[in-house]
Amino acid sequence: MALPAYASPLEKLWHYTYLVICALIFLFLISPILIIMPLSFNAEPYFTFTEKMMALDPEGYSLRWYDSLLTFGMQAPDAPRDAAWWGDFWRNAQWMQVTKNSIIIGFFSTLLATVLGTLAALGLSRPEMPFRRAIMAVLISPMIVPIIITATGLFFFYSKTGLANSYPGIILAHATLGIPFVIITVTATLVGFDQSLSRAAASLGANPRTTFFKVIMPLILPGVISGALFAFVTSFDEVVVVLFVADHSQQTIPRQMWNGIREQISPAILAVATILVVISIALLTTVELLRRRSDRLRGISAR
């Protein structure tokens, strides 16, 4: 946004003030995420920068909180770190258990949400689809309805059907929560989809299944993967449903963090948070790359 040559001094002043305001808002957005990274390497059990940290003294930094993540819950945390120690870690460490749970629940709910969601998005994008708007409204509603209401409903439903305190129960619930994201991203990809391509495939003798796998799928794949990543993140970050319908053996990473924040907040939480931020940076990069690829495939150059 270049300043025009005819701008008056007052306008110039406002223009630079405006840029400073924008910079401050960006700082507000990003600083909370960046601030936890250095603090997670704090050598002291404080949530603030110590003098040694400010002086960039290596003694002020340590990996002790990351180490405490490994050992928390282990039977023999102080044993020498050999194969037996790592076996103990794999079986007993609390954060390892919740990570396993998060990945199992996230994987299956994402699979369910992506397969069902992609099929539905294909149907919703057809011009012949009846009641399109109403059906779309129902399918998106899990994103809009407050999570506490969903969790309350599931609590009553699961206690009657025996799905409470079980993996299938949480997987089904998380899949429901992830579905709107899959629908939104996949239908957005299909908006630019050229229907004559599938007609061309049909006229060349391909049956619907071949057309789907050889023509449609490759073109919408970036949108499907983005939707799947959204669904996975939704499950990976969900805590309220887990609070309401899971018991001790299905704790997930956010559930464990919830405990940590509510009870005794220690810099170990910051170590977990830092790891999660790194994961979200990786996911965001993937989604951005996919989006560009999808735009290129659909012939929208550089957006």
């Binding site: 936890i36 949530f47 603030t48 948070a273 999660l276």
Partner: peptide, 23 residues
């Protein structure tokens, strides 16, 4: 990036920033 970052992570960060002994 904030959009993709876990809700609990962002809430934790605000606790770290804003609490009485915080940054």
């Amino acid at each position: 990036l904030p959009f993709w970052t876990s809700l609990l992570v962002r809430t934790t960060s605000w606790i770290v920033l804003l609490q009485q002994q915080g940054v």
